[in-house]
């Protein structure tokens, strides 16, 4: 597939290098400011995670006293051992991985298939079809009728309940459609001359040229399925089918909320998770999805179009 991704001509790169050397001082100043800005911004977004990491590696006493900032105090690894040995955590992790992989693959497929025809201005009734889709971004029947539907489809308490209804995400569909519209019509025209049908045009011409947007939408879907806890909260009752974010959510909620009503319910207050374990759980539940982006980043190469498009 890599061979389909054309690179920028090397002569252009060389030319650019030469130009770089002769940059004027406002351009240099701009660069300095730009780099400084992103270093600061990057630090501000990274520090909370460093803080969580430090907390997860510190003794509970130091965390409770709020003494942990960026470095662990009284270093310990027990929290990670505790979380990773917790069957409920590992079970939830497996459910989440499965859900994310299946959900992303299916949703990406259906959403792309939907976006393609809707990107064709020629399609009769296109405006109304688009409105029908966009309508559902704003209006929904609400939880009760949806639950009733899922109940009648025997989907309650099953994993497909968590991804089947989300297979067409209208926002994501519109982003792909928008991208397809930006591809030159000449692509389709020349393929048609060769007698190719729409499915073949989509698969062999549009998709390879749309890797950046497909990577983006795959990321959006993956993050959506990974982070979704609400649907699981409503549709899943069996503890062993709970995904990770629901597990995490409940871990954090139970620690804060039960403290409020603890007077009548001291046993639950006694059983809340230590803060260092909460920090470790947040990190362990976030890191897998963070790894997706760097992996997809290579598809964000500038100028995929050049070379393959001869207008």
């Amino acid at each position: 597939m890599d061979s389909l991704t054309p690179r920028m001509p090397t002569s252009a790169q060389a030319k650019r290098r030469r130009r770089d050397i002769r940059r004027s001082w406002p351009e240099k100043l701009f660069d300095v400011c730009n780099y400084t800005l992103f270093v600061l911004l990057g630090l501000s977004t990274l520090l909370p995670f460093v803080n969580l990491l430090a907390k997860s590696l510190s003794s509970e006493a130091a965390v409770v006293a709020g003494r942990v900032n960026l470095l662990p105090i009284d270093l310990q690894l027990g929290t990670y051992r505790y979380v990773l040995e917790d069957d409920a955590f590992m079970g939830a992790l497996r459910v989440s991985l499965l859900l994310t992989v299946l959900g992303t693959a299916l949703s990406l497929l259906v959403t792309t298939l939907t976006a393609y025809p809707l990107s064709k201005p020629r399609l009769a009734g296109r405006k109304w079809l688009l409105l029908i889709f966009i309508f559902t971004m704003l209006f929904s029947g609400g939880l009760i009728p949806t639950y009733l539907l899922m109940h009648n489809l025997h989907l309650v308490n099953t994993l497909p309940a968590l991804f089947l209804p989300s297979m067409v995400n209208v926002f994501n569909m519109l982003v792909i459609k928008n991208y397809f519209e930006g591809l030159p019509d000449s692509l389709e025209e020349s393929a048609k001359l060769d007698g190719a049908g729409h499915i073949r045009i989509l698969l062999s011409i549009y998709l390879p040229l749309s890797l950046p947007v497909l990577a983006t939408i795959a990321l959006f879907f993956a993050v959506f399925f990974w982070n979704d806890y609400f649907n699981a909260m409503i549709y899943i009752s069996t503890p062993s089918l709970k995904p990770l974010q629901l597990f995490l959510k409940e871990l954090l909620v139970s620690s804060s909320d039960f403290l409020r009503n603890a007077t009548l319910n001291p046993d639950q207050a006694l059983n809340t998770a230590p803060q260092s374990i909460q920090a470790a759980s947040i990190l362990l539940a976030t890191v897998p999805i963070l790894l997706v982006y760097p992996f997809l980043q290579k598809y964000f190469v500038k100028g995929v179009l050049v070379g393959s498009v001869k207008e």
Partner: peptide, 21 residues
Amino acid sequence: LLLLPGIAVLLLFKYTPMYGV
């Protein structure tokens, strides 16, 4: 034909419960 799966999901999961409004 390509639109079919998307429309089907939309009708089943979004429009069927719409009476809820």
